[in-house]
């Protein structure tokens, strides 16, 4: 985590310099707009990283996680696959067979519901594990 935002910000600065060059040299609104979008996305991503973990802006290697902390890792997610297929059917339906838009819409709602269940189950499992395994957390300090 530590230092994760630094390459993003460094790159956004380089991009901003090139954007400024483009602005001065071409003055083309759509070109500066596209450039500005790219700079903005990267800066926002970096801001998000810093907001979720202040260490993201500090130099140095990442630290080991606090002892006893666990992470739930799902093995399968049918919800994710169904959601993807739902999105694809909606767009496909727009071009070819309109009923697929409804089918995809229904599927999307179903898959999002299923996703909520998956996320909830994952959280429950993580909390159960953490409450149980505090004593032997040393085992896990380095990670996987």
């Amino acid at each position: 985590m530590r230092g994760g935002a630094i390459p993003l910000l460094a790159w956004a600065c380089l991009l901003a310099v090139l954007m400024a060059g483009n602005w001065v040299w071409t003055g083309d609104a759509i070109q500066v707009g596209a450039f500005g979008f790219a700079v903005l996305v990267i800066v926002l991503a970096a801001a998000w990283l810093v907001a979720t973990h202040r260490g993201a802006i500090r130099r140095g290697p990442p630290e080991p996680p606090p002892p006893g902390r666990a992470e739930a890792a799902p093995d399968l997610s049918f919800a994710a696959v169904l959601a993807a297929i739902a999105v694809a059917s909606i767009l496909f339906g727009l071009t070819w067979a309109y009923f697929l838009v409804y089918f995809g819409g229904g599927l999307l709602i179903l898959s999002l519901g299923r996703l909520a269940l998956e996320v909830q189950a994952a959280r429950a499992s993580r909390e159960l594990h953490e409450s149980r395994s505090l004593p032997d957390s040393a085992e896990q300090e380095r990670g996987p």
Partner: peptide, 9 residues
């Protein structure tokens, strides 16, 4: 971070 046993759906 450490990895807990997976939530097997």
């Amino acid at each position: 971070s450490a990895t807990a046993p997976a939530v097997t759906t």
